[in-house]
Structure formats: C-alpha cells, structure tokens
Design a protein around this nucleic acid. Structure first.
Lengths: 340, 340
DNA sequence: ACTGGCACTCTGTCATCGGGAGTGCCAAGC
DNA sequence: GCTTGGCACTCCCGATGACAGAGTGCCAGT
C-alpha cells in the first residue's frame, strides 16, 4: 500500500507535534490538535501503515508514536515548506554585520549568530585554502636561519608558518626569494601551486637551491597537503536544552565528536551544490552522532563556494526553521565576502 | 577549639575518599580504609568539630560527610604533598613536544595534552600581546585604498588586521610607512607602543598625516586597547565523566561559561607569581561555576610570564595530581618557548 | 472506507515498608 | 580528659504493589 495524502498529513502532524512537545503523540491528541477531519480510529489505521513502512515507531506497546529517521527524512523531503524568516531574525542578521572588518570577525560573529538563531550548536568553516587564491606571500626574517612565511589569500585568510633554513641566509637573498615567490604564485589558485612551486625550485640558481627547496617544502606541506582547514564552533550549551534526554542519556559522545575537527569538517563539508543539506541521525556516518542531525550549507561570494557552515542538533529539531536560517545566513556571509 | 593533627588527618582522609568514591564518607568506612588508630566514635567527634568549623557537611542527617569548599581549600593549602608525575605522564609530555613548529602548534597540542592528562577541561591562553614585543610589522596592499597590517611578535604570535585608508595610497608611500613603523616599533614592548605611535604620527609630513593617522588608530585599537587575547579549549567531553552529578544537575551553566572568552581569561589570568593557583568553587567569582574548581598557572620563557593555562573540573577533583600536572605542563611550555 | 466500542497493555506515580548506614549522645574505661 | 562501646534515632534508598491514564489493535456496524 502506498501513502496517500492523508497518511502524509498524519506524518507531518506527528513530526510537528513531537518536535514541539517532546512526547510520543497518540491518535486522539492528533485529531484534537489538527483539523484532519477523521476520527482517532482512522488515524490509528494510518499510523499502523506508517509504522509498517518504517516512518514512525512506538517506544513501547501502548505508547504514542515517534518519528524515525526515515520519517524525518520524508518530512524534510516532501512535507516541508520553507518557513520565511521572522522580522526579528532578519534584524538580527542585519545587526550582526555592521562593523565587521576581518575575516576572523566575520567567522566568529557568524558562528555566534547561527547558534543564537537556531538555538543549536553552530559550526563555521573558514574559507578553504584549496579554494582560495594566493594574494601575497611575505617572508619575515626572525633570525639568520629562520624566517616566518606569511600568506594572505583572496578570501582574507592569513596563514603563517615558521621556516627553518639549512644555513644562514643573507637579507638580500630573502628579498630575492620573496620577489620571485610572489611573482610566480600571486594570483594563483592554491590548488594549482604545487607544480608552480616545483618549477620555482628548478629555476633557482644551484647555489641557492637548497634554501629555496626548504622554503618550497614548507609551502607545500603547510598550505596544500596539510590543507589547513580551520573552523569555529559556538553554542555548545544549547545541547543541554530539553535536558539530556535528547541525546539518549549522555552528551558525552556528542561533545567528543565536536572536539574532532576532522569530524566536523566531514559534517559540514561536501559542498557540491549550493543548496542546503540535511543529514538525519544515521545518515551522518559517525557513530557518536546517531541521535543528531546536521543542517549545512556551502557559502562563498557569488555562486562560488569557499567553505561550509551548519548547525547540529537533536534529530528532533525544527527542520523548516533551521533550514531557512542556515540558508539565509550562508547567503548573507557570501554577500559579505563578495564585498571585499 | 583548634584543629589538632588528627583532625586534619581525618579531613584529609575524607577528601581523599570522597574524591575517589564520589560518595559521602562515614566514620566507620574511614577507620577501615585508613590507619587512623582510633575508633569510629572518636572520628565522629572529630567530624563534629570539623563540621562546626565549616570544613565538611552532611548532605542530610544521617549521611556521611562531604568536604565543603573551605575543606578543599584547607586540604590544598596544608595537606597536599606534591605528587610526582608518573613516568607515563612524563613520557606523554615528552612525546607531545616532538615536531612542534608553530605557536599555534604549541598551543593546540598543549591544550589537548592538558585535557588528556588531567581528564578535565583545559584552557590555554596564547601569549598575551601586552606582554610581548613587536618583532616586525608588515604592510601588504590589498587594493589602492586597503592594506593588511601583519604584526609578528617575539612570542610567535602573528596578528593581522585590515586597514581602510581615507584615499588611494601610492606604493612608495606604503613602503615608506612600513620602514618608519618598523624603525620606531620593532623590538618595543607592546605595552610601550601607544606613546611611540603618537610620536610617529606627529613626526609625519603633514600631507601624509591622515594616512598615517589612520594606520595608527588601527594599530592602537587592535593591538593595545582591544588587547586581543586568544585562547584554546579542549576536553569539554570530560565534563560528563561521573554523570551529570558533579555539577549539580546541569552542565548548562558550565558550558555557557566556557563559551565566554572573557570569563575564561579571568579564570586563568591574574598570573602574578609564577606559582600554580587553585580556585575552588565560590572562589572564582562566576555564578555559573559555583561547583567548579580551576587550577591555573602562568607560563613563559624563563622566569617571565607571557600567558596563562589551566584546567577546570568539579570541586571534587584530584587536586594534588592536577596541580602537579598543570605545573609541569606550564614549565614545559615555557621551556619550549625559550628555545625559540 | 470510516467509525465507535471494547478489552488489553504498558508506563508513570504514589504510598508503603524494611534494611542499612550513619549519626549524636551518654556513660564507662584508660 | 580523651577515648570508646553501646544504643536509640533519623533518614535515604530500593523493592513492592496498586492504580489511573493514555494509547493501541481489533472487530463489528454503518
């Protein structure tokens, strides 16, 4: 038997009520709160079908129904109209942008904004280096054998790294390296740099080659291979809303997952299309996050995408609202970046 | 009546047992587990005194005793012998240092190390700008009216900031400013810079003064007034050890406090003497952390102090062990910084 | 295909009730 | 004067059982 309109309507009602009340919802309560136009008994029959199809389940015999991950999925895919942002939310977003200067500023404010609006844990990835281009490279001598390499990208990121040289370097040589490195790399996409860096070494006069090779290896290692993703996190305290119940007893696994940058990047990464993405429960393949959902989106100036952002909350979350907020904030950050 | 040796011994035993078992400790259990050489009845009398003096209390009539904040304080001040680090811990510290390069590296690894060793929440402050000296300032043009100011300090921090200029600046002027700013400020303590920056503006040729003033204001605002403290956090998941019981029901207030940089800085700040500092319960004046203790220490190369680090846990924590670890790590980080 | 009715099941709550642990006090002992 | 054994008392905690409430599944009737 397939799902007719009314059954879908019942599912939607169940999801909505459950999200709101945090309690298994029964047939009688449902017909009272929604205009379904049928009796509880009928709803019960529909529920039986929905349960058989795996969209809802009973915590125990003779309790109300609770949506399953599949149920939420169906809800999100077919039953969600995008909820427009409230004026208050719009105002909050507006207000947050005034006076931003730095990239750091943008990221930190964004992550707090997201956490506050969605009342959940928010994650914002800094613009990915692999999607940025070099704007400028600077070499600053620290001692005779050491210098600091500073890279500024077109996305506003500034990365630095200590370079240990094989031997003392005269200031003029540093100067020369600086000139040549910039000449070769400035304006280039970071993804394209490895071959350019290699060329750079090859073209260096033999007597200076060890030094340049040293610099080159740091360049490659730091900026490409280790690909240096960074991110900001906020709103951890929101995990405790609704007691500890939301996450089957302990926050521990969730908190642990949040400490692993790699995991977070996986969650908000994968930013192929510019659309908002929802991962429900098991769908994000991390054991610790079985009872969590993630709503994420890519962001970037114009149509390009340079990084990801998102929020994490219990599977029982307000999907329409969260999706709308994440999307709006992502777009907003993109516009902000476009201005620079 | 003052506290004789045996009463102090009883207090120590209570603290130790309570920390270990997490349960109120009674007189009988106490004499069984420790060689006190007296009977339970005697211990009970001592306990009555200790309670009257405010060092322990009963959760309810006819329960065992639990140390109060004052009890922990006495324990820490007078009853704690420093516990030497275990070989495993020493090894862990050794292993963590190999291959560190960056300051970022140092800070991140340190905070994780601390969290792991103490099994608590760890906080590490980046070297404070106000205690650092300028090593180099770099001006990188981004567009005709914009440039990025990059500052490198002797403690390894690299801060950058966008400067919006009143009008287009020819490259030569940027060059000149760069030279003069470095000439004046390089090597100076950041705390001393404000007057120097002012002088710098005064000495500038009138036609270039607006530009320089603009740069100067950013310099001052960012690097001194807003004094830009940064910090790293790790081990939040450790809050959940021992159930939620440790923090009177909810982690919420604690998690909230951990999100406020200002609060954290207050906690691990105040680094007057180079000794380790313990704040128990109410002693750290933040309402949200009534049931938490903080063990913190300053760190820096040699005898100087450039920043703070510490851990936060339940008042019922292993003070001797935690203090030893924090102290050892702080010293270690100091040595590491001294090498650069 | 929907509905009303009915028997059944399970949870959550409340009260009751010992067992156990711990205390405070007192009188006796060293 | 400290220490000790004894004793009555208090309170928590877990188990037990009763009970109301909510919800279901099924069936017969419309």
């Amino acid at each position: 038997m397939s799902l007719d309109d009314r059954k879908l309507e019942v599912l939607r009602a169940i999801v909505q009520d459950y999200v709101e009340t945090r309690e298994p919802v029964g047939s009688k309560a449902l017909v009272e709160r929604h205009q379904l136009g049928v009796s509880p008994a009928t709803v019960r029959n529909d529920m039986a079908v929905l349960e058989e199809e795996g969209y809802i389940r009973q915590p125990h015999t003779s309790a109300g129904r609770v949506p399953t991950d599949a149920g939420y999925r169906l809800f999100v895919d077919r039953l969600t109209r995008i909820k427009p942002l409230s004026p208050a939310e719009k105002r909050a977003i507006e207000r947050f942008m005034i006076g931003v200067v730095d990239l750091d500023d943008v990221v930190h404010r964004t992550v707090r904004l997201l956490a506050q609006l969605t009342r959940q844990v928010a994650v914002v990835q800094y613009p990915s280096l692999s999607r940025s281009a070099v704007r400028h490279l600077e070499l600053v001598p620290i001692s005779t054998t050491r210098l600091t390499l500073v890279m500024i990208t077109d996305t506003g990121r500034v990365e630095q790294r200590l370079v240990e040289m094989p031997g003392p370097i005269p200031p003029d040589d540093v100067w020369e390296m600086r000139r040549r490195v910039n000449e070769k790399l400035a304006g280039q996409k970071l993804a394209d740099t490895p071959s350019l860096v290699q060329k750079l070494v090859d073209e260096t006069a033999p007597e200076r080659r060890p030094t340049m090779a040293c610099l080159a290896s740091v360049l490659l290692e730091t900026l490409v291979e280790r690909s240096e993703e960074r991110l900001a996190l906020a709103g951890t305290a929101n995990l405790t809303r609704g007691g500890v119940l939301d996450f089957q007893g302990t926050l521990r696994p969730v908190l642990e997952a949040l400490e692993e940058e790699v995991i977070l990047l996986k969650l908000i990464g994968d930013l192929e299309p510019s659309t908002t993405r929802v991962r429900i429960g098991d769908e994000n393949e991390i054991d610790n996050l079985r009872s969590a959902s993630v709503v994420s989106s890519g962001y970037g100036p114009g149509a390009t995408i340079v990084g990801g952002l998102g929020v994490l909350g219990p599977t029982r979350m307000d999907y329409p609202g969260t999706i709308a907020t994440v999307r709006a904030v992502a777009r907003y950050v993109g516009d902000l970046l476009a201005q620079n």
